[in-house]
Amino acid sequence: METAYIEVQKLSKTYSAKNGTVEALKEISLSIPQNEIFGIIGLSGAGKSTLVRCLNLLEKPDSGTVIINGEDLLTLSKEQLRIRRQKIGMIFQHFNLLEQQTVLENVCFPLEIRGIPVKQRKEKALQLLKQVGLEDKAKAYPSQLSGGQKQRVAIARVLANDPDILLCDEATSALDPETTKIILNLLKEIHDTMGITIVIITHEMKVIQEICTQMAVLHKGSLQECGSAEEILKNPKSKAAKRLLMIKETEEETDYVG
């Protein structure tokens, strides 16, 4: 049995909404081994975004524990958590780049946070931009880039801190299928060359199919199924997984007809 790198135990989170409360997460327990590409899939409202945001405590769970590499994040002091977060990278659906800063300055930002001297910052940032194929855009501003390019900048930015974990919150949901493929390939390449554990949140089966080695299916805040991605894709047991696979097939048919 592989040892868990990210271990989530009995995680619960409830939001208060206008009409009562919403249980976003109901006692989720999950273990993610090191060096996997772990997909978490579910329809909107399944709680997957809340779950991934609990992994770096952007969201504080009501109860449960989040253990990363043997360290219980909820027991850390504010300052310890701040330092720990520097090694847990996160990329977002809407990229979240600094709009008033150049591409190069955006990639330098995490290094600036860590107090790395300007010259070294720039060197490292340029090298990362090269890695994501955007060295010619260093002086451009995010508004001058396409969605796919923006996400590549975000990936370069997240790699600047040499993270051991990369969390992807619907990172390809705002992109077209072609660009999605490019970004997923880039993530896979990063995983293969740098050995980073990747957690991907998505509502699209094809994202899982493309790069995930393991997966979990979430439905209305509860864990439905968890295990090898290949296994679940071939032989889904839960209703939610079957439904998600069906959606994908219908989409493919429409693609074909269209």
């Binding site: 977060r85 996160m90 979240n96 600094l98 946070i113």
Partner: peptide
């Protein structure tokens, strides 16, 4: 944009 602030928090700023 709240997202940009969140990104900075996630970087440990």
């Amino acid at each position: 944009n709240q997202g940009v602030i969140e990104a900075a928090i996630s970087m440990g700023a």
